[in-house]
């Protein structure tokens, strides 16, 4: 729920275009920050984690149509630079299967990688306070997901003018005719204007209420997954810090 599941052709060109430009710029910046040997060593792991994220996205929990992202778990294991590349790859593959449009890959990469990067830093920060893996992992995931959902809502909000244009596309042809037929009173015009406006609050209410369930579920699942990894190979959670 924290990334844009919107298909192609809905968001305005300037919005998804800027998403691509920003994503490419950040990818370039991260690629300068990471050592070449480190990248070579971790590329197969990146592939595996990205594949796990794709598979996670395909396992839907039926009644609320929620799927796990595994972005926070991947962010903790891969680190901020590689999670960005991993989400880029995941979004491209998911888009090829109709899970979000091709044009929104850039924006989705920014939102999903924000989730992974925040999860990574929250996990490390909370670990300094408490060494209990389940609450630390749960809180990190919950916070990272809620923040990335709000960023997704913010991105969708930026295109409201465009959705209004789409809503009124078919009315433009008949506008003149309609005015000749009937002259409206000020009250009627005001009412009509309000009903024609994009109902963004409704969208927000649906996304946040479904999202909240998702944050809880993902938080529980991620913390149990990390507990599983922590029991078997705890060093994997701190591999990034050791280099």
């Amino acid at each position: 729920m924290s990334h844009i599941h919107l298909p192609d052709g809905i968001l305005p060109v300037w919005l998804w275009g800027s998403g691509y430009v920003l994503a490419v710029l950040i990818a370039w910046l991260f690629s300068r920050l990471i050592k070449k040997e480190d990248l070579t060593r971790r590329l197969p792991l990146l592939g595996m984690m990205a594949a796990a994220m794709v598979l996670g996205a395909s396992v839907e929990i039926v009644p609320i149509a929620y799927h796990v992202n595994l972005t926070v778990a991947s962010g903790i294991l891969l680190g901020p630079s590689l999670i960005f590349l991993a989400t880029f790859v995941v979004n491209l593959i998911l888009a090829l299967f109709g899970h979000g449009g091709i044009t929104v890959i850039g924006l989705n990469t920014l939102i999903l990688s924000l989730e992974g990067i925040l999860g990574h830093f929250f996990f490390r920060a909370f670990w300094r306070i408490s060494n209990r893996i389940i609450p630390v992992a749960f809180l990190s995931t919950f916070l990272a997901l809620s923040l990335s959902t709000f960023s997704m809502i913010g991105v969708v909000r930026l295109g409201v003018d465009h959705y209004e244009e789409l809503l009124h596309t078919h009315e433009k042809k008949g506008l003149f005719e309609l005015k000749l037929l009937k002259e409206k009173t000020g009250h009627e015009e005001h009412e009509e204007e309000a009903s024609e406006k994009v109902n963004f609050r409704r969208f927000m209410a649906i996304v946040l209420s479904l999202g909240f369930l998702g944050w809880l579920l993902e938080g529980v699942i991620t913390s149990l997954i990390l507990r599983y990894i922590y029991r078997l190979r705890p060093e994997l959670l701190w591999m990034i810090d050791k280099g």
């Binding site: 590329l43 197969p44 592939g47 595996m48 594949a51 794709v54 598979l55 880029f88 593959i93």
Partner: peptide, 15 residues
């Protein structure tokens, strides 16, 4: 690097 990551992900998906 991006295409290699894409290829490795694709291969890993089958595994």
């Amino acid at each position: 690097v991006f295409v290699t990551a894409l290829f490795l992900t694709y291969r890993s998906m089958f595994i």
